[in-house]
Computed example of a mutant assay.
Amino acid sequence: MSHSLDTERPDRGRSTNRRSSGELIRHWRQHRRLSQLELSVEVEVSTRHLSFIETGRSVPSREMVLRLAEYLEVPLRERNRLLLAAGHAPAYNESGLDAPELDSVKTALRQILAAHEPYPAVIVDRAWNIIDATSSIGLFANDVAPELTTPPMNAYRVSLHPEGMAPLIVNYPQWRAHLLHRLRRQAVITADPVVQALYDEVCAYPGGEPPTAAGPGAPAIPLQIRYGTEILSFVSTLATFGTAVDITLAEISIESFYPADKRTGQVLRELFGE
Results as ranks from 00 to 15, higher is better:
I131W: 01
G208L: 03
H161W: 03
L34A: 05
N142G: 00
T16Y: 01
E73R: 15
I123D: 00
H31G: 12
V74T: 07
S104W: 05
S253Y: 06
H88L: 08
S253F: 06
T107W: 05
R157W: 07
A91L: 08
S253G: 13
N17E: 15
V158Y: 01
P173A: 02
E270Q: 11
M1I: 00
E163S: 10
R29G: 08
P222L: 04
A133S: 08
W175F: 10
A218S: 14
W28F: 08
G207W: 02
Q174T: 02
P75N: 09
S233E: 15
A155L: 13
R18W: 13
R12L: 09
N129P: 01
Y92R: 02
P167C: 13
T243G: 10
K262G: 08
T55P: 07
T237P: 01
P219M: 08
I247F: 07
W28A: 01
I231R: 15
A213C: 10
L271D: 13
H161E: 09
A115R: 08
E42V: 14
F140C: 03
E274W: 04
L198A: 05
G56Q: 00
S256V: 06
E70T: 12
L37R: 05
G56A: 00
I189M: 13
A220P: 00
P146H: 03
S15N: 10
E78T: 13
L24G: 06
L109Q: 09
N17R: 15
F241R: 04
T107P: 02
A197E: 14
R9E: 11
A141M: 07
T240H: 14
P10Y: 07
P100D: 07
M153V: 09
H88R: 11
R185E: 15
N129H: 03
V202C: 04
Q266E: 15
Q36H: 10
D132V: 02
V74H: 02
M64C: 04
V122M: 03
V105N: 07
A166Q: 12
L68D: 01
V267D: 11
L109N: 03
L232E: 02
L113Q: 07
P120N: 00
R226G: 08
G207D: 05
T240I: 12
K262T: 15
A133W: 01
H27T: 10
N142H: 11
T229I: 15
E251W: 03
L113E: 07
